[in-house]
């Protein structure tokens, strides 16, 4: 009785505290989505217009993020790069979840032998460094946004697959699945009605966090030259291009890097919030 009341009170307090973070991260993400869909709303300058007289200007009122070595407005380049970066992030996270769902479902539901094989496969993928996988794919497919999506997606899939497997296993052994079996529902109906939706629920949160992490990963790869080539203004490519001028014009690396951090933070915060509100719905 005491414990319950205390828990309720802390839950209320936590909710209040989180909703600030939730609002802030939701607004931030909304701005990024606008930038991705309609970059011209946020930026007035052409991201590709070169003006060598304005090269390597530090941030000012005219150029909020300064200019690069060709005199292009960095802020506009960041805004116009959002679409590609976000697409890579969403694509990679989506691919990871998709692969994870297939692998996780087999690992949890198939017979002993196929499940064993898939489990070993997940473990091998886990042990395989994402960077090595990316190098392998780049050398086979060539550096492109698609390669980035595939390598980051496959690289993060095994972690999610394990999560999916755990979710499905706990759902499979739950009282409501047994109750559905007792009602005479077929295995497929039970999978469709109970197991899959209950396994997908926590993935909403994981997906949101995954988008942020994927962007960080993809930018990291682009930074070491495994990503999208210039003149694309994908954020990783911006970092890569700015690297040469890091001593004269540090803003070329710092500011795009900062934007990446803000997006990743916002996505993670939102994901965590979704996760905790889902958990609350299950246990409160």
């Amino acid at each position: 009785m005491t414990a319950v009341s205390e828990r309720t009170v802390t839950a209320v307090a936590r909710k209040r505290r989180i909703s600030v973070g939730f609002t802030a991260s939701a607004i931030t993400l909304a701005i990024f989505v606008v930038a991705a869909l309609a970059p011209n709303i946020l930026s007035t300058q052409d991201p590709l217009a070169m003006d060598f007289t304005q090269a390597l200007q530090s941030p000012s009122l005219a150029h909020w993020f300064g200019t690069d070595e060709s005199g292009r407005d960095l802020f506009s380049r960041v805004v116009y790069g959002t679409r590609e970066s976000l697409a890579i992030g969403v694509g990679a996270a989506g691919l990871a979840i998709l692969v994870a769902l297939v692998l996780g479902s087999i690992a949890a539901l198939a017979g002993r032998i196929p499940a064993g094989i898939v489990n070993r496969l997940i473990e091998v993928l886990f042990a395989f460094p994402t960077l090595l996988l990316a190098l392998l794919l780049v050398s086979v497919l060539g550096a492109s946004p698609i390669t980035l999506v595939i390598s980051v997606g496959l690289g993060s899939a095994p972690g999610y697959a394990r999560m999916v497997r755990g979710q499905i296993l706990s759902s499979k052994n739950s009282g409501y699945v047994e109750a559905a079996r007792a009602l005479g529902h077929s295995r497929f109906t039970i999978f469709r009605q109970h197991i899959l939706p209950n396994a997908l629920r926590p993935l909403i949160a994981i997906f949101t966090m995954g988008v942020g992490q994927s962007i960080v990963w993809a930018s990291g790869m682009a930074f070491i030259g495994l990503g999208v080539a210039p003149p694309s203004s994908e954020w990783g490519a911006l970092l890569d291009a700015g690297r040469a001028y890091i001593t004269q014009a540090s803003w070329l690396v710092v500011l795009p890097g900062f934007v990446i951090v803000v997006l990743a933070l916002a996505a993670t915060t939102l994901g965590k919030h979704i996760q905790s509100s889902l958990e609350k719905g299950e246990t409160a």
Binding site: G175, Y176, E178, A179, A182, G184, Q193, P197, N198, E282
Partner: peptide, 23 residues
């Protein structure tokens, strides 16, 4: 073969909460 007869026998558990899909 059992499914046809399933509706003849049903069950009530100790903890109803866990026997309902929370969604």
């Amino acid at each position: 073969k059992r499914r046809r007869l399933r509706k003849q026998i049903s069950v009530v558990y100790q903890d109803p909460l866990s026997s309902f899909d929370p969604r």
